[in-house]
Design a protein around this nucleic acid. Structure first.
Lengths: 244, 244
DNA sequence: TAATTTAGTATGTACGAACATACCATCAAA
DNA sequence: TTTGATGGTATGTTCGTACATACTAAATTA
């Protein structure tokens, strides 16, 4: 078991190594049915770290609700959430078409980058791995409306050669056999800075609807990290209950 | 400073007391502008607990993004998120009306209860405080569709005497001067148990769309904790981008 | 004066120890 | 047979200590 070892010489903190190890461990089928993990003291002994370090790592996973602890029993993997099938995500353009509006890409930029730490962690990739980054400005009637930034997990197989003007999730499903499912979405508001102001043709300080999204595949593994900056004077996010 | 003291005799764990103390502390205006909290060692000394206990408490708040830590600098209060104004939440019934369907309350029950620990914590109320609990089953064409359970923070001023057949958020705003804003929403799926099966007229084991929601006021203080159980065969949750 | 060194302070990481409390399965008593 | 006691195990809480690392500002040097 090479992946189940801790490197005391590494610059990576022990608790981070343990956390990572646990993340990989709990993906294994033998832990999927709520079976108990090894107890803390044994894990500590086996990995050659202290119990506090084990707890530091498990605490984080418990916060994230990946693990569940029961006093007097042990720690087990949380039963996985059933995620709702994605069907409308990339239909933004289509919806606009139906309303008789042409929603076009104003600019598009695709590159390979080494992402920030939080994305590395989300994607569970090394600090040197490069991922595909896509930036888009979309607009309506000559007016830019939204600025998207996406990072795609290497397992999507997307490259700079793909056609990003076509519906993306269709491309992923057809050409790369990756099926996107909803995972997590957060909406908040920020103020436009200089850069955003320029991209969206508004003054810095104007309100921006900011959406953060993690797209996962059917196995709940992250495939895309996506940020969306919407001109708040042109768009509102609403949650809608639709009949089947 | 009565609220800034730790009771070593209490059954409540020290770290929980510290956490609670910090939650109250960081609401004060003097910490709102990113000013630094007292450093960990001093806090530990002042409160008569160890630094680990302080960290145990602050860790949680850091994880919740209420606090921000900077190595070599200190810990400060995170700038508050601007939350989007709520306008469509209680329009469920209205939407249905527009579609020519009558969405009615099938049953409704209002009571005063001592809530579970997680709600106590969310509401930041004592273990003895009672809150208003409301349970509703709503349905369509003689068929129950959704089961709601809500707990309302005492500050809403809602009592069992209020009329819960009228749009709730309008009542809150008009009669109790509480303005609801979106805070957090989670959607998942569960299986119906006996109770849910009976309430929704389906067999136990049938899929249920489960929605958990925390409604906050304009000051980001929680006012309602709401659970919704939707018959998955009748409803789908979609996220929709609508033009203003 | 401007660049650099350095001391002080704050968080970050890690260890080890001890006792409390919840749970469970087994065994004993009513 | 059912109830109750009990000991083993696992997490929960808390303490104390030590050193690493990042940042800041004051003191030093070029």
């Amino acid at each position: 078991m090479d992946l189940l070892r801790i490197d005391h010489q590494s610059a990576i903190p022990l608790h981070a190594q343990v956390e990572d190890l646990l993340r990989r461990l709990i993906e294994k089928p033998e832990y999927q049915n709520g079976k108990l993990l090894p107890n803390e003291i044994n894990m500590a002994k086996k990995l050659g770290v202290s119990r506090s370090t084990i707890r530091q790592a498990t605490n984080k996973l418990v916060y994230e609700q990946l693990l569940v602890r029961k006093k007097g029993v042990g720690t087990s993997v949380a039963r996985k959430n059933i995620s709702t099938k994605l069907d409308k995500w990339d239909s933004f353009t289509h919806e606009m078409d139906e309303k008789g509006m042409t929603f076009r890409n104003y600019s598009i930029k695709v590159s390979n980058v080494v992402p920030e730490k939080d994305i590395q962690q989300l994607f569970r990739i090394g600090p040197d791995a490069t991922v595909l980054k896509m930036e888009r400005v979309k607009g309506l009637d000559g007016e830019p409306i939204v600025y998207f930034v996406s990072w795609f997990h290497p397992r999507t197989g997307l490259t700079t050669d793909d056609d990003f003007n076509k519906p993306l999730y269709e491309t992923l499903e057809r050409d790369h056999h990756v099926v996107a499912s909803v995972s997590k979405e957060g909406i908040s508001a920020i103020l436009a800075d200089k850069k955003l102001g320029k991209l969206l043709s508004i003054d810095p300080g104007e309100p921006i609807l900011f959406r953060k999204r993690v797209v996962c595949d059917a196995g709940d593994r992250p495939i895309e990290y996506n940020l969306g900056y919407y001109r708040a004077d042109r768009f509102t996010y609403t949650i809608d209950i639709a009949r089947k």
